[in-house]
């Protein structure tokens, strides 16, 4: 049987949803794999929603908004872009970045809508079923997605993403603008370190372990595990439960 991917689309009410409607009115045909959730603005699409979709085993997630500059809410799509970029950065770590896509469709672009859906569906078909939904359910990947979901629930990351445009485009609290590259690096570092911490924490929730064990379990260098464990400890999320030989054993709190 041919693989029929399950694809979820988050469409903004004013442009892309209208564009999809136009495709219908115009009877433009496109593959039937897409299921649409209508949101008022693409900026409403919390990375957590996308992650939930992926964790449920959906094969692809499509986010569509108004063209940049045309947002019904002035700049909601820019915010969508910030969120999406951050999400993409972390999904790249686990090779799932190809299964999401953000693009712009106006209310008059029924054809463009159909093309985008077509292309994305084809791409997902070529990728094959999501490793989560396949028969050899990838539990490790699920854990990693769970960890990424924690990252995007973290206030540190949310506040960084939320301020990105203000700081890099307009001016920060000192009346200066921060270079986009510099910000990107700070954001990437923050995402990576929070990803490690989430992974470590989730692993400790399953069972108490030493730095060595965790390092093997989640495949991160020991020094990095140790450093980020200290931060978890500082945040009151982990503590030393005992010592096994020369190895402190940590537990989640």
């Amino acid at each position: 049987m041919e693989f029929e991917p399950k694809i979820l689309g988050f469409l903004c009410n004013w442009c892309s949803y209208a564009g999809a409607d136009l495709a219908g009115v115009s009877r433009i045909q496109y593959p039937p794999n897409l299921r649409v959730i209508r949101v008022m603005c693409s900026g409403r699409v919390d990375p957590v929603f996308v992650l939930d979709a992926l964790m449920k085993g959906l094969d692809g997630v499509l986010v569509l908004g108004c063209h940049l500059g045309d947002c019904h809410y002035i700049d909601g799509n820019y915010e969508a872009e910030s969120k999406y970029r951050a999400l993409e950065m972390l999904l790249e770590n686990i090779n799932l970045n190809d299964r999401i896509n953000l693009d712009w469709v106006s209310a008059s672009e029924g054809m463009r809508f159909a093309d985008l859906v077509d292309e994305f569906t084809e791409k997902i078909k070529s990728l094959g079923p999501s490793p989560i939904s396949s028969s050899t359910k990838d539990l490790k990947l699920l854990d990693e997605l769970q960890a990424i979901k924690r990252v995007f629930s973290n206030s540190r990351i949310r506040s960084l993403i939320g301020r990105e445009r203000k700081i890099t485009l307009l001016e920060n609290t000192y009346g200066e603008t921060i270079d986009f590259e510099k910000f990107n690096k700070i954001l990437k570092d923050a995402l990576d370190s929070e990803f490690y911490r989430s992974q470590i924490y989730l692993s400790l929730l399953k069972k108490s372990a030493s730095v060595k064990d965790i390092s093997q379990e989640i495949n991160i260098d020991k020094t990095l595990v140790f450093k980020n464990l200290l931060m978890l400890r500082q945040r009151g999320l982990a503590d030393v439960a005992g010592v096994d030989g020369l190895d402190p054993i940590y537990k989640a709190l």
Partner: peptide, 17 residues
């Protein structure tokens, strides 16, 4: 301090014998 008073080494957080 950073290790809450445990003597650990920075590379992997084990107790240096």
């Amino acid at each position: 301090g950073p290790y809450s008073g445990m003597v650990l080494r920075p590379s992997d957080g084990t107790i240096p014998e």
